[in-house]
Amino acid sequence: MRYLHKIFAVIAKDVVAELRTREMLSSMFVFSLLVILIFNFAFDLRAENQRTLAPGVLWVAIAFAGMLGLSRSFIMEKDRGSMEGLLLTPVDRSAIYLGKMLGNVLFITVVEIIILPIFVVLFNLSAADIPWLLGVMLLGTIGFAGVGTLFSAMAIHTRAREVLLPVLLFPVVIPVMLAAVKLTAAILDRLAFDEVQNWFSLLVAFDLIFMALAFILFDYVMEE
């Protein structure tokens, strides 16, 4: 119980800090909208191919916005040395990892919830798909933030911190992107679950494996 209490304290602290400035959420939101807009120009999305491009556009927007959120996540800890303050508390490192990770999932999910209706309108999709899309988004976001939180904690100690995170993270989370795009496409195309069950399993497996791995390795990243 105490362990859960501390995870929650870390999340609550991040949420309170974010609500005060709203810097991160607003920049993530605007950035993801811009990605969708740029795709519109770049691919000149015409009526007949909109639906086929939609899943890819959606996930690129999420990945880029998520990347922004992840890189902010530990920069905020590092700036005044509050990272050390966090590490000085008599709390298992894994609780700090889970707190930061769930906080990141929360922030990215909030952005997703805001952009999804806009996305549905722009791509002329059915509103009935929204709950299913949110489910896939949540699974994808967990996989993304699971490794992302670990790498973000490493990237802040490097010289090129914001630049390095995408270089490290994108290659590792490609299976998440592939599975998420496939599942999103399956929802839009009304495929039966059986047809994409392997992608669903892959996504869940990735989430579990890499969360467990990051959970173990976080301890080694957190030494000064």
Binding site: A9, K13, T21, G85
Partner: peptide
């Protein structure tokens, strides 16, 4: 300082008190 700039003194201490 080991403090969070965006939080108030009370919020900072509240967080650490829980930890």
């Amino acid at each position: 300082t080991l403090l969070y700039d965006d939080l108030s003194a009370e919020q900072n201490l509240h967080f650490y008190a829980r930890m």
